[in-house]
Design a protein around this nucleic acid. Sequence first.
DNA 1: CTGTTCTATATTAATATTCGAATATATGGA
DNA 2: TCCATATATTCGAATATTAATATAGAACAG
Lengths: 115, 115
Amino acid sequence: MNSTGRDLYYQMHAELCQVFTSPKRLEIIDLLRDGEKSVQQLVDLTGIPQANLSQHLAVLRQQKIVVTRRDGTCIYYSIPDLRIAQALDLVRDMLLERLKADGRAAKKIEAGLGR
Amino acid sequence: MNSTGRDLYYQMHAELCQVFTSPKRLEIIDLLRDGEKSVQQLVDLTGIPQANLSQHLAVLRQQKIVVTRRDGTCIYYSIPDLRIAQALDLVRDMLLERLKADGRAAKKIEAGLGR
DNA sequence: CTGTTCTATATTAATATTCGAATATATGGA
DNA sequence: TCCATATATTCGAATATTAATATAGAACAG
């Protein structure tokens, strides 16, 4: 491949991964993988203020991680391609193994992540 | 799970994903998945100045994505857990499908990424 | 020990990201 | 139309990330 194409690809990939660098966005993704939710539901579930949540949802929309559906005044968000969640699972498993090996904090974290 | 554990997990996960938000680091990871390489080899392969490359390698080391082995004056880097690469592959496949669907730029990028 | 090569770190300037506050837009109902 | 609810956007301050330059350290040859 020419370097232009490669560079463009790595840049797009890097920009996509930027989505995953916020704990709040990871939490939103984890909630949406179980089924679509409205913004208000996400506010209630996460405790994130609406305006800030909307900012994070905009980032997810921009990178096409989520899609929206309007029903009356509500807008429902969902994840159309679950490979995103699979990729995050791979990273999560690595993280948990690492914590287990370290012996630290693993139980506290692992306990609540069962799927 | 209690919210402390969940928050801690999401924060660690987000910090790990921070590694993937630089095109240069993605390129380094792609080179290392094919086998260990010295810093000098990476300089030659990527064209990244040594000091800047070393900074990126430090980020990868900090998050334990890579490990090092010294042999004389050279330091060899490698990726001990290839689940990292698998997760990146999932994202890459999504990206390429998306580009193909858009019809834009896909060929230019895809041509050089075959594995 | 001296010089040379390879690698790591510190500093700094430019740029990007985050959050909260305020404001704007859209839909449905009275 | 006017109001209420749901969601999105804009702006500014604080913080974080990046790359380049310069410097420092580690290992080896002589």
